[in-house]
Design a protein around this nucleic acid. Sequence first.
DNA 1: CATGAATGAGACTTCATTCAT
DNA 2: AATGAATGAAGTCTCATTCAT
Lengths: 213, 213, 213, 213
Amino acid sequence: MRDIVRVGREVFSERGYERATTTEIAQRLGISEATVFTYFRGKRELCLRVITEWYDEIIAAIAAGLPRHKSVRAQLEFIVATHLRLFLVHGTGMCALVLSEGRSKGPSDLGDAVLPLQRRYTAPLMDLLARGQASGEIRADVPLRLLRPLVFGPMEHILWEAVATQRRIDIDATASTMTELLWNALRAPSAELAALRAMRSELGAVLDRAQAG
Amino acid sequence: MRDIVRVGREVFSERGYERATTTEIAQRLGISEATVFTYFRGKRELCLRVITEWYDEIIAAIAAGLPRHKSVRAQLEFIVATHLRLFLVHGTGMCALVLSEGRSKGPSDLGDAVLPLQRRYTAPLMDLLARGQASGEIRADVPLRLLRPLVFGPMEHILWEAVATQRRIDIDATASTMTELLWNALRAPSAELAALRAMRSELGAVLDRAQAG
Amino acid sequence: MRDIVRVGREVFSERGYERATTTEIAQRLGISEATVFTYFRGKRELCLRVITEWYDEIIAAIAAGLPRHKSVRAQLEFIVATHLRLFLVHGTGMCALVLSEGRSKGPSDLGDAVLPLQRRYTAPLMDLLARGQASGEIRADVPLRLLRPLVFGPMEHILWEAVATQRRIDIDATASTMTELLWNALRAPSAELAALRAMRSELGAVLDRAQAG
Amino acid sequence: MRDIVRVGREVFSERGYERATTTEIAQRLGISEATVFTYFRGKRELCLRVITEWYDEIIAAIAAGLPRHKSVRAQLEFIVATHLRLFLVHGTGMCALVLSEGRSKGPSDLGDAVLPLQRRYTAPLMDLLARGQASGEIRADVPLRLLRPLVFGPMEHILWEAVATQRRIDIDATASTMTELLWNALRAPSAELAALRAMRSELGAVLDRAQAG
DNA sequence: CATGAATGAGACTTCATTCAT
DNA sequence: AATGAATGAAGTCTCATTCAT
């Protein structure tokens, strides 16, 4: 039954919900199609299980590895890198599956069940952003509602492009660069000014001492 | 035949490629299903046409309205706003359709035909970014390959969220805010450097005066 | 499409709803199974149509031939004979089909749609009984609710037995005998009362003589 | 194993043979589906057992309670009342099951095995009618083959109607009325006259004694 | 040109039944 | 004796597509 979920993940992520067939899942496992239905009430339920388990993995990975003692920027980079890594390992098919089917209003209607998962999935980032805003490191004049897509959106596109072009990407380098870019967008503008002013003050002090010397 | 494309766009964007049926398209038009096949070799070709025309509209809209005489930042904001507007007007179904089906590897395989369209579609932005890099306004130490998803990714997420939550969004305000955020990420750090250099000059002058004193 | 209904009637009446298959219906007609679904949304709807048309035929036959100018008893005999005839011609499978499926609460749930038909179907008899009660020919001290099964119930059993034993029956003779039997049950006990009254009169006379004696 | 038959009766009578599933029977008992097949060769055999036991109960109930010392009419009323009672207690599902499946010609083919049961089941009535004919109380000019359905047919319809309309019925009152109706149909026409004559004779005798007194 | 009619291919699903343990 | 696991066979239904008219 674990096998069915495993192969189910393969097929659903390769083909999407509609084009995936229970026939293919059974064939890849060398079992009868009926066996699939012994363990899952139907295609929809199997797919739901596949999605749920996949979300659980990511959520667990983020929760386990997030370096909470480090800076907000470092935690952001961890989240970005981890997402890139997990998605690339598991194939971006899952990404597409979730994004496409998670919002459909067809008979499959995975949407309702997927929504809470998505919330748990984005929770660590939302939490991080909120903490950053509270500490003044992240600009608070833009609602989280707009900051979240700023982080997840680009990752998704990068992943899809990586798959479409079949090109290997350097995950750490990409994560590092993206974090650098995103950080510029996210951090409080005042922080820059504050930093400069601090520098100027310090310089002034140095100069004063120099002049005095 | 124009009608078929028009209604095709409706149905494909509402249902996605797989769940859309030629039956429904014909029914909505009050014509025979066979008539659809008189004009289009098949479902796939019709969908391709729908996607193509939709891309053409966006490309044309961008090309026609892009304020080339204004600043790079202003042009960026125009592109962001225009995208949000067009997607929201036409329904985000088209967005999902293109994103989901444009990358699938099924028998429908719209991918190959869609790729060049996507290139044309992203061309204005790519061009703008390249010009920005050339003029020094946009940081050149990050490849366009990474800058592009930074722009399109968030827009997509914002749109999907808008649809999922059924919430109306203020397009201009959102575009303005997003541009502000993105610009911080995109603009050349040279601005900062310039400021630092200016400070250094000032500092040098001060030092000179100090020495002279 | 008429053919599909015709063969559908055959198969449904031979096999019952559950055991009838769309495959068999298509095969008997030498057409594709899909064709069946071109004309009928599903098995259930086809079966409904079969039942409806069959009811319509019987209802029409009764309505057309009922000798309204003759006596109530004669009309009763007509109804009995007509029923026996139609059921035996069309096979009692239809009878079983209607009786079995018309009351089921399964997924097929033909019940709701069949109920009004049954009402129309029994209407002529109900009407006749009511008229008989009004005219005093049929006993009015028993509700129609109990008189109706008295007529239809035996016919059904006779038919089933005829089919089960594969024995040919003389329809007119059977109808005649059954009517004779039923009539004794249905007719107003006034005849008996008359006899009793006569007896009372006679008795009175006897008593008178006795007293006189 | 007794449990399997008991629950089997429930499920078969609720759903009918085709719609009943071994899965459901096992589930209601909280046992494995395979266990059912440990005790019964298959669904068909289990159903046969269910029907057999049910018939046995009815046959026994009739045999045990039949008031052989009372009049033929009283015995008829007992049979009618007992049937109504047993069917309504056990649910009319059994009635439908027997009637529908007992005559089908499918792969399940319960028919052959059920036929002898039905014979035993109708035997008490047949016997009673025969005795009635012999004693002159029941008209002998109509074969039993036609008298039997006259009794069982109406009962069946009454039962089905009771189930269809979900209406509770007064069993004794219904049995009484039905017997009254049926008796009019069954009794020998001459019997009426004979009864009246007997009454007159008796009366005459009484009167004679009165006059003599 | 438009279409009514037909259909091949295949999807999901159900279920009685088997068998090794 | 009881069962967990598996499945063959079959069923209903969908849908893009064809073709004669």
